[in-house]
Simulated assay, not measured.
Amino acid sequence: MAAKVAGCELCEHDGGRLVHHDGDWRVVRVDDAAFPAFYRVVCNRHVAEFSDLDPAERERCIVLVDAVERTLRERLQPTKINLASLGNVTPHLHWHVIARFDWDSHFPQPVWGAAQRAPDTARLAALRARLPELDRVLAERLHYA
């Protein structure tokens, strides 16, 4: 494993509520009030780009991203899943896997874009109430992924 880089947010912190850790990768749920079903698949080595990984590491990454996406689709039936690996602010390889709903405050804009409407607090609360069970199912599936 590459040494941690001082000042790198994802080297120094999990980056959210830890759902799965397998040595090379971790999956966390991001604490985002507006987007509660926001997960990250994070490389535990400090690398900046997907192409920095060897073929087996790239395959493992995609297997994890796929498992998170499939579980969110099955359990939450979102309008859309957003996948992103940006790293402009935190140049440490991580993938965002975000369940999006046509009622969310920013839809159809990206979560980092401009709000389109006020948050639907009732639907957000109902979604948050489902997260402990979702995290449990994700942890189980990722263990076998």
Rank of each mutant, 00 (worst) to 15 (best):
M1R: 15
A2P: 07
A3W: 05
V5G: 09
A6K: 06
A6N: 06
E9W: 08
L10K: 09
L10C: 11
D14H: 10
D14P: 04
D14E: 14
D14A: 14
G16M: 12
R17V: 10
L18T: 09
L18V: 13
G23A: 07
W25K: 09
W25M: 09
R26V: 07
R26S: 11
V27H: 10
V28P: 01
D32N: 14
A33G: 05
A33V: 09
P36Y: 11
A37K: 04
A37S: 15
F38V: 00
F38G: 01
Y39S: 03
Y39R: 02
R40F: 04
R40K: 10
R40E: 04
V41D: 12
V42F: 02
N44D: 14
R45E: 14
R45C: 02
R45D: 14
R45P: 02
H46I: 11
H46S: 06
H46P: 08
V47W: 05
A48Y: 00
A48N: 06
E49R: 11
F50Y: 12
L53R: 11
L53W: 07
D54R: 10
D54G: 10
D54F: 10
P55D: 13
P55L: 06
P55A: 13
A56S: 14
E57Y: 01
E57M: 10
E59R: 14
I62S: 12
I62Q: 13
I62C: 10
V63G: 02
L64D: 10
V65D: 03
V65H: 00
D66S: 15
E69K: 11
E69G: 15
E69N: 09
E69V: 00
T71N: 12
L72W: 07
R73G: 12
E74R: 15
E74C: 08
E74H: 13
R75C: 10
L76F: 13
L76V: 04
Q77Y: 09
Q77C: 13
P78S: 13
T79H: 12
K80I: 02
N82M: 12
A84Q: 06
A84I: 00
S85F: 01
S85V: 06
L86W: 11
L86A: 07
G87W: 09
N88D: 12
N88Q: 07
N88T: 05
N88M: 02
V89Q: 13
V89S: 14
T90G: 00
T90F: 03
P91I: 07
P91R: 10
P91M: 07
P91V: 05
H92A: 08
H92L: 06
H92Y: 10
H92P: 12
L93R: 03
H94V: 05
H96A: 05
A99W: 03
R100M: 07
D102I: 01
D102E: 15
W103E: 03
D104W: 03
H106D: 00
H106W: 00
Q109P: 00
Q109W: 00
Q109I: 00
P110Y: 12
P110M: 13
V111L: 04
V111R: 01
W112N: 02
A115P: 03
Q116P: 01
Q116R: 15
Q116C: 06
R117K: 13
D120L: 08
T121D: 11
R123N: 09
L124I: 15
A125H: 00
L127V: 07
A129K: 05
A129T: 01
R130T: 09
L131N: 08
P132M: 01
P132R: 00
P132D: 00
R136D: 08
V137D: 11
L138P: 09
L138N: 11
A139G: 11
E140T: 14
E140Y: 04
H143F: 04
A145Q: 05
